[in-house]
Every structure is written in C-alpha cells, then in structure tokens.
C-alpha cells in the first residue's frame, strides 16, 4: 500500500470540507493540521488524548448547522473507543470521525499501538452505530465524497505513512483557541437564526 503523508491527507480533508469545524487530537496530528493553514475553525487539543471524539460529539450536537470533523490517530482512537456507542446513539448527522492510522504512537517515539488491531476500526464504528464507516487509502476516492453527502455520523479510516518532518507546536494559547472558535460559531448562528439545540 502506498500510504500518503499526514500533511497531505489533512490538506485534502480541509479542501474537501472547507467550512467544517475540525477538532484534532493532541500530538503531531494537531501540529500537522496547523500547518495546513491555521484558523478559528481548527480547535486543537494540546493534551487530553482520547478526548477529541467526545469534544466533537458535543460540539456537533450543540451546533447542528456546523459540520464537525474529528481527527483522531490510531492511538487516540483506541483510547476513546468507549464513545463509539454514544456517538451511534446520539447520531449526529453532522459529525465526521477520521482515524489517521500509522500503527504507532509517533509523537512519543514510534511505539506500536496495538499491533495491527486497527484492522477493526470500521467494524467497531459500525458496531457502535455509525451508518457509514469506510476504510480508504485516498481522500480523493469517490466513495469518500459519496459518504460525505449522506447524513452521518460518518467514520473514515485512513492508513497514513510515518512523518518525514515534525511540525512546530501549536502557536495560539489554549484560551485563544476557545475564544476564536466560540466567536466563529456564535457568528455563524446569528447569520442563520432559528437553530434548535438538543
């Protein structure tokens, strides 16, 4: 398999969903996302491994006009798997859950995660109640576009290559990340009144 670099995959995801809110797991994946072009629609976790999915789930349920994309790695996915049935039960149509899988904890030195256990990512998502769960090698694959056109929650499992370079740390202070994302969502809401939250 000719796996893509994480930077390229993230750039393609942002290009495919330019108006979405991205919530990214801690470590290198958030740093890679920042390199795509930082903005208020990117909410990076600098810690709290495994928390990206519940943050994104609540965000998707409380801001239903937004599309929310959770970026997990294989390590953080395994930590947060207890959330899959909750996501299935809450069934946010506007949530996309991406697992970028290089089979290792690369941010901490490349330790293996669960030794190929991630073969079951899409099966776990389906068992949790995601109506769509795809394993794809390329974001440009037409099945991705097709799945994103349907109501979610949608799971996408993407094998990726190890990194060739390490991106810089997250630049904005955590408080600023909160301030700017809250402002963006509030502005979007005032431009589209009438949203009802759960």
């Amino acid at each position: 398999m000719n796996e893509a670099s994480p930077a390229r995959v993230l750039a393609e995801l942002v290009r495919a969903l330019p108006d979405a809110l991205f919530v990214s797991t801690c470590g290198y994946l958030s740093r890679d996302l920042q390199q795509v072009g930082d903005g208020p629609n990117f909410f990076y976790l600098v810690g709290s491994m495994g928390a990206a999915l519940p943050v994104g789930l609540a965000l998707a349920r409380c801001a239903q006009r937004e599309r929310v994309v959770v970026i997990d790695g294989d390590g953080s996915f395994l930590m947060g798997m207890n959330c899959l049935p909750l996501v299935g039960a809450q069934a946010p149509a506007n949530l996309v859950h991406v697992v970028m899988d290089n089979g290792m904890h690369e941010s901490t030195g490349g330790q293996q995660t669960a030794g190929n256990a991630c073969r079951g990512v899409t099966a776990a998502m389906s068992a949790g109640g995601y109506p769509h769960a795809l394993l794809v090698e390329d974001v440009a694959d037409p099945v991705v576009r097709e799945a994103l056109g349907k109501p979610g929650p949608t799971g996408i499992h993407l094998p990726i290559a190890p990194r060739e370079a390490i991106a810089p740390r997250i630049a904005p202070e955590p408080e600023e990340l909160v301030r700017r994302t809250r402002k963006l969502i509030a502005n979007n809401r005032s431009n589209h009144p009438g949203e009802v939250g759960p």
């Binding site: 928390a51 519940p54 943050v55 789930l57 609540a58 965000l59 801001a63 909750l86 969502i185």
Partner: peptide
C-alpha cells in the same frame, strides 16, 4: 472523562 470532554465541546457551541 467523556463527560468532561463533552462539556468542553458544548461550551465551544455556547
């Protein structure tokens, strides 16, 4: 920790 993380996501949404 899921409840606490969800609280953070809800706060982002106001």
């Amino acid at each position: 920790e899921v409840a606490v993380a969800a609280a953070a996501g809800a706060y982002l949404a106001g």
